[in-house]
Design a protein around this nucleic acid. Structure first.
Length: 231
DNA sequence: GTAGTGATTGCCT
DNA sequence: GGCAATCACTACG
């Protein structure tokens, strides 16, 4: 297998890998543009795992009190947020989970991927996820594989050591692609972000986005939200 | 179906 | 030393 081992895959379908220009847009635009696109992970054994992105959140840096890069603060951990658009930022949280982000245009701005609809190699995702489940009673459905930021990292075997700081426009381990379904107009729900604790103003901003009525979303908001047609 | 709670460790102050 | 962009488990209805 050569360093160009992804080319065979692309030749067989209508999907196309997205380049640097896709990521070099303002953070909220990237968060919305990512919805409907497909996240592809190529594992070290060459196997491919895929999921369609159905839920994202924007972290703007600068004035955004919920952002790890709030105030323009750069630390060893959040450095990838300040790297060029399309850089992968994986961080470890709650002592046991990973979250996966993509840097965008803007100082310290990045998009958190919160949920995927599994589309290819679901068996592989199941195997990765089973490892983390202790109770033998727990039965995993396809919708339980990637409906949360840490779950999708487990299902796609995303961690700091192998993924952090690579760029999605060039790395062979992971990329984003667009297919015919990605191009369709969709209804997007805009609502507040989950799991953050900061001043009210930033806590409540509508910086979480998901595809309306998609069953693979992590949490459905019923009241404080607005819908837009996109693009 | 939802609510409450413990797990577990690297990073930052 | 405090805590985190979470999750699975249990209890309950």
């Amino acid at each position: 297998m050569t360093s160009d081992h992804t080319s065979k895959y692309f030749a067989e379908g209508t999907s196309k890998r997205l380049g640097l220009e896709f990521f070099n847009v303002p953070c909220e635009d990237l968060a919305k543009n990512l919805l409907g696109k497909v996240l592809v992970r190529q594992l070290e054994d060459g196997s491919i795992v895929k999921g369609r992105i159905v839920e994202t959140e924007s972290y703007l840096g600068g004035d955004d009190a919920a952002s790890q890069s709030y105030g323009g603060k750069i630390t060893p951990r959040n450095e990838p947020m300040f790297m060029k658009p399309g850089t992968i930022y994986v961080y470890f949280t709650y002592g046991m989970y990973h979250c996966f982000n993509i840097s965008s245009q803007g100082e310290g701005a990045a998009v958190l991927l919160r949920a995927l609809e599994p589309t290819e190699n679901i068996e592989k995702m199941l195997n990765f996820r089973k490892t983390y489940i202790k109770s033998p009673k727990t039965f995993l459905k396809t919708r339980d594989l990637c409906n949360g930021p840490a779950k999708l990292c487990i299902s796609l075997s995303i961690d700091i050591k192998t993924c952090n700081k690579h760029n999605l426009s060039s790395w062979n381990g992971m990329w984003i692609e667009s297919d015919s379904q990605s191009e369709l107009a969709k209804t997007i729900v805009c609502t507040s972000r989950i799991g953050i604790h900061c001043k009210k103003e930033w806590q409540e901003k509508f910086l979480r986005f998901y595809i309306y009525d998609n069953p693979f979303v992590s949490k459905v908001e019923k009241t404080k939200m607005k819908c837009i047609t996109f693009p």
